[in-house]
Write a protein that binds this DNA or RNA. Structure first.
Lengths: 196, 196
DNA sequence: TCTTTTTATTATCTTTTGTTAACGTTTGTA
DNA sequence: TACAAACGTTAACAAAAGATAATAAAAAGA
């Protein structure tokens, strides 16, 4: 296993909790690589998906399926932790699918193993808490935006915020889903904004 | 301090983690009552709000303020844990206000103290993790609803789900905010549904 | 009780969004 | 290179939502 890839994951984890080598080595034997071709699914709706990973290379999206329509609601880029988090922590079938937008490479491990670490190491338990808090903060912010802003305002926020990567690297019709509108509507919003 | 009130809180906490008496008594000395009149604010936007509590009696709402408009996005009833969670965990000023919808009674403690418990007791750290996970699950579910369902579908879900309490006990114009629409629009949706 | 405030509905008008389809462009692949 | 698929824009129409104002009923407070 490539040392640099390991460091990418360790650095991501240590943004939450600094680890001793010993603590880190509780996880490393359980890591494995996963390569995905563009369009390939990593996590599938309806299955109990316990895997968690970090994106080493590539972009991914996750989407819900409603009436046969795919609704993309999140994107993952390099160094992002990716999983069907709720399926992993609850052990219930995943409600969403995660697929590669471009050819991608992941470093993955099972959440079940992480849970055993929770039992054996306070540092890892703390990591689990901080990740959940981080996720809750992000979701709360996103939800507040959906409830208090118009689609146009949300699009402008995407342009200004630290989310340019989404604009640059993701097809626009997926971004429309992410904003809670249709691709046609997003195209109109863009036109309206250009006319100003 | 009333034994029954203490039990209400302990039961709520033990839905996440069972505690020994000794662990429980790490928290009890730091509890205090708080009574609020209808309309009174408990948490105010712009202030660092570290308090967390459980509703013993009454209903509360939390809202964001945008352009002078209040947007209500959550409700609390008896036995619910209530706080400006993100302000508490990050130590940043609260983005939202929490006020009593009816005369209310809370049992409260400071999140700062809970954080010291995280350092001293694995059981309490686990509680912190499980609460954050619980919150993330709820937020993800809510957000998926906002992105994949129409306002009418969201209203119907509120009628059917385990959320009747909201319909029964909260004025309709707050529910409209909660669904991401205006009160006028919710009134029209109700009319449309009745005509079927 | 009486008065004030809060709440819900309705009407009108404007704006936005959804839906469907057509079109041209770009991108990916055989 | 050539063909097919994916992508973004535009048009036309229908449906829904926002804004504002008027009204009536219900609830709260004095």
């Amino acid at each position: 296993m490539e040392a640099n890839d390991l460091n990418v994951l360790r650095t991501a984890i240590q943004r939450f909790v600094p680890l001793t080598d010993q603590e880190w080595e509780l996880l490393t034997p359980h890591l494995r690589y996963r390569s995905l071709a563009r369009g390939e699914k990593w996590i599938s709706e309806g299955r109990k998906e316990q895997d968690m990973g970090i994106v080493l290379e590539g972009n991914m999206r996750h989407y819900y399926t409603r009436d046969g329509e795919e609704k993309t609601t999140y994107f993952y880029f390099e160094r992002h932790l990716v999983s069907s988090y709720i399926s992993a922590i609850t052990g219930t079938p995943s409600l969403l699918t995660i697929e590669a937008l471009t050819d991608s490479r992941l470093l993955a491990f099972s959440y079940a193993h992480l849970q055993t670490l929770y039992d054996h190491s306070p540092k890892w338990e703390r990591f689990g808490r901080l990740v959940a808090e981080y996720l809750a903060i992000g979701l709360e912010d996103r939800m507040a935006g959906l409830l208090t802003m118009s689609p146009e305002e949300r699009y402008l926020q995407l342009l200004e915020g630290n989310k340019q990567k989404i604009i640059e690297r993701v097809p626009q019709h997926y971004i429309a889903n992410y904003l809670g509108i249709t691709p046609v509507s997003l195209s109109r919003i863009r036109k309206r904004l250009l006319e100003k």
